[in-house]
Amino acid sequence: MARPVKHSLTLSGHRTSVSLEAEFWRAFREIARIEGRALNALAAEIDAAREPGTGLASAIRLHVLAWYRDRAEPPAA
């Protein structure tokens, strides 16, 4: 598995660093592009909605997972 890569994001005017695996960064950027949103805006929305005690990187990973799961084909019965 790839090691996390650190990138800076701006949330509510403040810079923060987030470490995600390259695959998650690609998926996160793809989601923002498909939705026509800035990456920082999407990150700020995820940040505002995350549960207390959940790190931003984990919240982004969970958002990416949920986004793709919502679009996946339902399993065959």
Rank of each mutant, 00 (worst) to 15 (best):
T10M: 10
T10C: 07
T10E: 12
T10P: 02
L11Q: 03
L11W: 05
S12W: 14
G13E: 01
G13V: 05
H14A: 14
H14K: 14
R15P: 07
T16S: 05
T16I: 15
S17L: 04
S17E: 00
V18L: 03
V18N: 00
V18H: 00
S19A: 15
S19P: 04
S19K: 06
L20M: 00
E21M: 13
E21V: 15
A22G: 09
A22L: 09
A22K: 03
A22I: 12
E23S: 15
E23C: 11
E23P: 06
F24N: 08
F24H: 12
R26G: 13
A27W: 11
A27F: 05
A27T: 12
A27M: 08
A27H: 13
F28P: 04
R29S: 11
R29E: 13
R29F: 11
R29V: 12
E30T: 15
E30A: 14
I31K: 02
I31H: 07
I31A: 12
A32Y: 03
R33E: 11
R33M: 02
I34P: 00
E35K: 13
R37L: 05
A38C: 09
L39Y: 07
N40K: 10
N40I: 11
A41H: 02
A41L: 13
L42H: 07
L42S: 02
L42T: 12
I46L: 05
I46H: 02
I46R: 01
D47A: 15
D47L: 06
D47W: 12
D47K: 00
A48M: 03
A48F: 02
A49P: 00
A49Y: 01
